[in-house]
């Protein structure tokens, strides 16, 4: 039941066949569609990079969930991006073990190198920098993730290499 008074409001987009396929697979695991909500948002994010209003509405339509309910879930979780992010999302661990081993200076290093602060994306849309709570790699601190890959025992030099590799991959 959507209210159409605001006609400029975004409309649901069409989900892609891949997205639908993956969502359908997740649905087999749960007795209620609501349980698939977060997984479906992650699927959309996997393909689109982030969850736009149009994507959120599409998932809501597909799972027959109220968009408001899905938005409540989407905005609750740290790793659902409701704003566009760069091609490479850098998740820099800023929790205590990494902090003790100098993640603050790594953060400064990345920031000055890429010209972005936490929450920002580089102008060329290559990198977004986000702090992440303890990545569970404290014995190899400091650590970060870029995309699905975890990088450990970081040093400024190592970071330079990683960023260069990412950029080369595009």
């Amino acid at each position: 039941m959507s209210n159409l008074i605001a006609s400029t409001a975004p409309k649901a987009r069409q989900l892609t066949p891949e997205e639908i396929h993956d969502i359908e697979h997740e649905k087999t695991h749960y007795p209620y569609a609501q349980a698939v909500g977060l997984e479906a948002l992650k699927i959309v994010q996997k393909y689109q990079g982030w969850v736009s209003d149009e994507s959120l509405l599409a998932v809501a339509d597909y799972l027959k969930l109220p968009p408001d309910e899905l938005e409540g879930v989407a905005t609750f979780f740290n790793m659902i991006f409701r704003r566009p992010v760069g091609k490479n999302v850098i998740l820099l661990c800023d929790s205590v073990a990494c902090w003790m081993l100098g993640c603050d200076s790594l953060k400064s290093h990345i920031s000055s190198k890429l010209g972005i602060d936490y929450g920002q994306t580089t102008a060329d849309n290559q990198f977004t920098l986000i702090p992440v709570p303890c990545l569970g790699d404290c014995d190899k601190a400091p650590t970060m993730m870029v995309g699905d890959v975890t990088y450990r025992n970081l040093t400024p030099a190592k970071i330079d290499t990683i960023l260069a590799e990412c950029k080369a991959r595009g």
């Binding site: 959507s2 408001d68 938005e71 409540g72 905005t75």
Partner: peptide, 9 residues
């Protein structure tokens, strides 16, 4: 009602 709810945390 379905068009209202809590967001963020």
């Amino acid at each position: 009602g379905t068009d209202f709810g809590p967001q963020a945390s």
